[in-house]
Design a protein around this nucleic acid. Structure first.
Lengths: 194, 194
DNA sequence: CCTATTTAATGACTTTTGTCAACTTTCGTT
DNA sequence: AACGAAAGTTGACAAAAGTCATTAAATAGG
């Protein structure tokens, strides 16, 4: 059972990483399994993010809440991806974002201490981390570009093309605040496009 | 003379990196110096970015141009920072962005081949790269958040607080399209705030 | 299978931002 | 220092998106 979770992780990582069996065993040993309910909060705003999560099944949402309760989705993490409140996890600072599992999910979690240990003892892990960061950074750049150059409709169309599962699978309010628009605007966008 | 450029680089990198003198020599050997004029184009849209630049003096701008000539600034790179058209440089793809030096600048440039060579032969370089990416990614996350949660005025105020040199030093049109707003809106923002 | 809760859609109106155009100021360059 | 180009400002108007309120539809979870 737990082995299955590990295999999912291994299959996800293996393209970019070359570890010995012993090393894989150490990595697996750093992973705690966790099952969450719909809308369960994994990290509250203001706390320091202690875990890097790997989503085996389900979906995580990293989001911000302002004083008047307005939410904005920083990231959505689906099956086969890692995610956490990255600035908090990395810099050991209070998190401006919260984490919730918006679907019942199966997760693996790696503590910050173990993450650092792996970085310091396993060159293959550092390489994998670098490659992962590289891709995450590129994705962030693309998102920035879409925000500074496109209007809401264009951003919606791109998302539909590049990542339709976000739109198909999640309630519109998450899609809306991921795109940086209001729920009503999203609803009107959908109506407009035919 | 060239030694000075190298020392700037070394002082920038040394906090996060631990290299032997021999290794520093190899790194320096990978750096070509380049002097640019105001508004000189270093990379045209559609080409593959072959160099990672380190700004010793001056300022680079990584920017997008759409069909009707509208520009949007993806990044501004000042003294002491690295920059390039990152997705293109990393993935070896045609760049959607161009690079220009908006001030006369002194640069060091590292070719993609050398960059890869350093990654593959020098663990300290890979570590530095990871740490740099970590910070760049965090900065990107913060920028995404400002774009999805704030209006133009708030973004301007934050920029003024966090990075006033961008506003003080650069023509407003660059500031405007870095913030994702029009030049006129920026001008009105400035007038409004007193 | 039901129902409380969540989510989506829509109208009316406001606010923000963009666009176009004219004009002024600043600044590079010689 | 002076000229020409680039940048900045401002007004009038248009377009995009947000807000508030209400109603309808969908869905989670017993």
């Amino acid at each position: 059972m737990k082995v299955n979770l590990h295999e999912v992780l291994r299959q996800t990582l293996s393209p970019g990483i070359n570890l010995t069996e012993e090393e894989w065993a150490i990595v697996f040993n750093c992973c705690k399994a966790k099952t969450t309910k719909r809308n369960e909060i994994l990290l509250e705003k203001g706390k320091i993010s202690q875990y890097l999560y790997f989503v085996v099944k389900g979906c995580l949402r990293i989001f911000l809440i302002d004083e008047d309760g307005q939410e904005a989705t920083r990231f959505l993490i689906f099956e086969g991806s890692f995610g956490t409140a990255f600035p908090s996890f990395t810099l050991r600072q209070q998190s401006s974002a919260a984490i919730q599992s918006i679907e019942p999910s199966e997760l693996l979690m790696i503590s910050h201490a173990d993450y650092q240990m792996l970085l310091n003892t396993m060159p293959g892990w550092e390489r994998m981390t670098r490659l992962g960061l590289q891709q995450d950074y590129i994705d962030a750049i693309i998102r920035i570009e879409s925000l500074i150059t496109m209007d809401a409709k264009q951003r919606y169309d791109i998302l539909m093309k590049k990542n339709p599962k976000i739109i198909q699978r999640l309630p519109g309010k998450f899609v809306a605040d991921y795109l940086g628009i209001s729920q009503e605007t999203l609803s009107r966008l959908k109506a407009r496009r035919k």
